[in-house]
Each structure stands twice: as C-alpha cells, then as structure tokens.
Design a protein around this nucleic acid. Sequence first.
DNA 1: TTTTAACTAATAATCATTATTATCTAAAAA
DNA 2: TTTTTAGATAATAATGATTATTAGTTAAAA
Lengths: 138, 138
Amino acid sequence: MNRKQLVKILRKNGYKATPQRLAIFELILSSKEHPTAEEIHNEVSKKFPSMSLSTVYQVLHLLQDLGQIMELKFRGQSSRFETNTTPHLNLICPGCGKIEDYNSNTIVKFWSKLENEFDFEALSQRIDGYRYCDVCKK
Amino acid sequence: MNRKQLVKILRKNGYKATPQRLAIFELILSSKEHPTAEEIHNEVSKKFPSMSLSTVYQVLHLLQDLGQIMELKFRGQSSRFETNTTPHLNLICPGCGKIEDYNSNTIVKFWSKLENEFDFEALSQRIDGYRYCDVCKK
DNA sequence: TTTTAACTAATAATCATTATTATCTAAAAA
DNA sequence: TTTTTAGATAATAATGATTATTAGTTAAAA
Ligand SMILES: [Mn+2]
Ligand SMILES: [Mn+2]
Ligand SMILES: [Zn+2]
Ligand SMILES: [Zn+2]
C-alpha cells in the first residue's frame, strides 16, 4: 500500500484525499512501532503544525472503516494503530506495553484454514500473544 | 474451573476469598455472552445489593492478573470479559458487537505450533475475527 | 473560476475507568 | 471462641482518552 493507492481508495468511496489523511496514513505506515493517536499527532504536527488531535482521531476512524488500518486497544493505555492488516502475530509485553509484529506463512495459512472450518470471511482479524519481553523478564 | 479452585488460587497468592470475588467470577463463568463490567455489576447486585461498581473493576483487574479471566477492549464500547482463557476464536460483529466463541483443537494446536515457531510462552492470547453477523448482514 | 459538500481545527462534553479514603471483614492468632 | 489486623469493599471524586459540536476552510467537480 502506498500514497497513490490510498488516494484511489478514498476517492472511490467518496472521500476527499486531503493532505492530513495522507500524512496520517503514511506516518503509521512508516512507523515500526504501533503508534498512539497522540504519537501520530506529535509526528504529523511537525509538517502540519495546525493539525488537531480531533482530526487525527477522525481520520483514524475513517481509515479503520475503509479497512486500511487496525486499532489495538489495551487496558490502561491509549489505542495503538497499525497498517499491517494481514493475519500476523502481535507479541505484547504486559510490563512495558511493547508490541512486536511477527509475520509468517504459517499464520496466513492457519487463518484461511480457520475461515474455512468455521465458514466465515473476516473483514479483519487480530492475533495477540502476551508475554514479558526480555527487558521486563527480570 | 470452579469456586473451590478459585478460592485455592486466591489464597495461594495471598488474596482473601471474599464473596464479592467469588460471585463476580461465577457470574462471568456462567455467562454465555462476554459481559461488561456494568452488566456484571447489574447481575451480581441482585445477590449483593450494596456491591459497588468500583469493586467490580478492582476484582476484574485482580482476576486478570491471576490469569483467570481475559479482557477484550473494543472501540466505542465498554470492555468485555470472559473466563475462557484457552486459545479460541472470538467471532465479532462490527455492527452489533456480538461475540461468539469458537473452540477447536485446530486452534489449540496452531497456538502451540506458533509458540514453538517464535520461541515464546504466552501468559494469555487473543484471536479475533471481525465479520458481520447474520442479523447485521442485511 | 466558481461552487459547495465535505473536511478541519478548536473547543467543549462525555463517560468508562481509576484513585481516594473511611469503614468493614476474612482469616490468622491467641 | 474471641481478638486482631492487613487487606478488602463501598462511596465518591477525579481522570483522561475519546467523541461531539460548530464555525471556518478546502478538495475537487462543474
Ligand atoms: Mn501488529
Ligand atoms: Mn471468547
Ligand atoms: Zn516489556
Ligand atoms: Zn451483528
């Protein structure tokens, strides 16, 4: 997925391709972490100093509705967002909240097997494993 | 898991086995839905009319820390809780929020395969699929 | 270039969750 | 059984992430 494709998707669904929308999407796309709305706002504000946090939330909702990003909610912390919408494993530390992505063909194949077994087609999915990271293990 | 086992777990970890804790756990256990804190409070209040919603939240945190329940957070709605802590599929409708549990050996086996492949041992896990339910499909 | 529905920015409001604290009680000890 | 007390509950206040509102702005179609 890139900027051009997103512009196409937005227009096809009757939405305007505004610089704010593109910047927010590209920020998440380029982030190796799973950033929060506030982190996204902080970063994107560097290029668009007048951007509102409200706008960030609105855009995040729109991108979710279009299936372009995934929101991960956790206890005691702000939601985290990612553009990796393919079936993959999020390994999450309950100590520090760090999230690591693990992609593998095993997972993709498992997911289609699951859709087959239970006869559904998912719009999106979420696969999380919780375990203490090396730093927090002590 | 039953009341007696929970009493044992609580005491082993230095917590008191209070009637509130047992009642909240048993309510979730007996619920086929994935109830919210408020729903739990409403139900348990029938037997314990002075129970506070604060207490419900406190107990829910404790039970999570002991690995006895799982919290599922979603956009725009209160957290939902369940006692099914084995690897299983939650099929969730983005329309009405309904959650259906699907247990299968495929999933349990997949999960241990995954732990093997990526060399971790999960304290807990979450596997969600999002798709419109039959009612909302129209 | 003009037009306008859609969008953004700023701000206020919401409400699920968490913090605080006085009172109470489970359960260990006497 | 009674006493003791650390830990738990109930009531209430506070928090803060998210959502609602609205006046002004703009993407993009004509
Ligand atoms: Mn991820
Ligand atoms: Mn479940
Ligand atoms: Zn950690
Ligand atoms: Zn539904």
